[in-house]
Design a protein around this nucleic acid. Structure first.
Lengths: 132, 132, 132, 132
DNA sequence: GTGGTCTAGACCACA
DNA sequence: GTGGTCTAGACCACA
């Protein structure tokens, strides 16, 4: 289940790569399991097949998947453990950026924490609206 | 003090816009204060003047700054209050994205919180290294 | 059919914007119809592609067109009705300016009207030449 | 009484030239009469003296005014008759443009006339608002 | 010196 | 092929 946001600046192929990495690290996609075909995934995401192909090609270059020509692409044997290691780095990075962004707008530690917690809560209880 | 990261996908002119918005919201740039000249900022950021000009032009279209041809660009009268309102939205947005990212990699509420707090701490005490 | 007059002070990108707005309001360009490609229009107008790109970009910021990267730019769903509303304002404005101009040269109501009507007539019957 | 609109694309020196031409053609400024000094007019219009100087310089090149160094600029002997001839052309031109603009937005003869007349009326009776 | 427009041309993301 | 960004560099309006 990959979601694409067209509005942003992040290339679609990067969003697809990230989505698949997420599924590998989650265990949704397991070692040697076949990925969806390029055409199927492209149709599902309403995206050009070339774009999916590029995502797969780069994942292959990174050693996370392998391709059997004429058959399909498969999750690599060591992908899961590779992703475990990268996962930590990736998530830390995303929070570092978010915190840096908040600081750029003048928030300090306590405020940043409060904002973060309020967002976490509001995402977990989306029906409730936001109390602060 | 705007920093440009060339590696990312976010266009330079967007990074400049964001930087200036941050400074306005921080009060570093105050109403009717002159922005650095296009050429100066371009030199400082090692970027083409056209790129800075585009950032300024878009900020003007958004009503945050105004320009006196032949003189300079200035922070708009209401920019600060405009940014105050947008600030909340912007920061919430950045945390929403970070949390969504973390979830995509299989983290849940408690883990996300722990990760966030460890990053916040490690940024505040950069000398200590990172404990995990 | 957009015409650019190089002699004037109005920037080329503004003339292109105005031309496209005219075509949308005329119904020559209909909702979801593709605009000419940036390169094609640039070639037709003998103008740099960047200049057309700027016009398109600003029309997009104004919400009149939308762009699918790698495909084309398209007329927005509500552009026609947006232009209908703006059309009145735009045309009233242009006559206000013309009338103000005439007054600046000392013409009064009746003379202004006579001049306007003679121009309207002479444009409708260009073959006849101008009688004064 | 010259009015400058800063928002537009028309250079300020052109607006000043046009204003002075209007005053000459109106007879407000008569042959051999001194124009306001560059500094005075610049102060009055809240504009840089260089800008007024340029307007005067070009009017001199067009033969409409002459300058006595150290004294002032004066309306030329034949300016009034020169302007009489140009006046017609100038005003016709402005209406031609306005009509062309209206046509670009799909209006035809009768509608154009109606719009023009309504603007003329509303300018003459600004207190009344616009009835159509 | 300062901003604004424009061109030529390169390179990239995407279809 | 199509749009987007960026650079280098020119020229102009204005201060």
């Amino acid at each position: 289940m990959i979601t694409i946001e067209a509005s942003g600046f992040i290339p679609i192929y990067e969003q697809i790569k990230k989505g698949i990495k997420g599924e590998i690290s989650l265990g949704v996609l397991k070692a040697n399991q076949a990925l969806p075909s390029i055409r199927d995934l492209a149709a599902e995401l309403v995206v050009n097949p070339n774009t999916v192909a590029r995502a797969y090609r780069e994942l292959e270059l990174e050693g996370l998947i392998y391709t059997r020509k004429g058959k399909a692409s498969f999750v690599g044997e060591n992908s899961s453990s590779m992703m475990q290691k990268e996962k930590v780095r990736l998530i830390e990075d995303v929070f570092d950026r978010a915190i840096a962004e908040a600081r750029k707008f003048g928030l300090e530690g306590a405020e940043i924490k409060r904002t973060f917690e309020s967002r976490l809560r509001s995402q977990e209880n989306p029906g409730e609206g936001e109390r602060r």
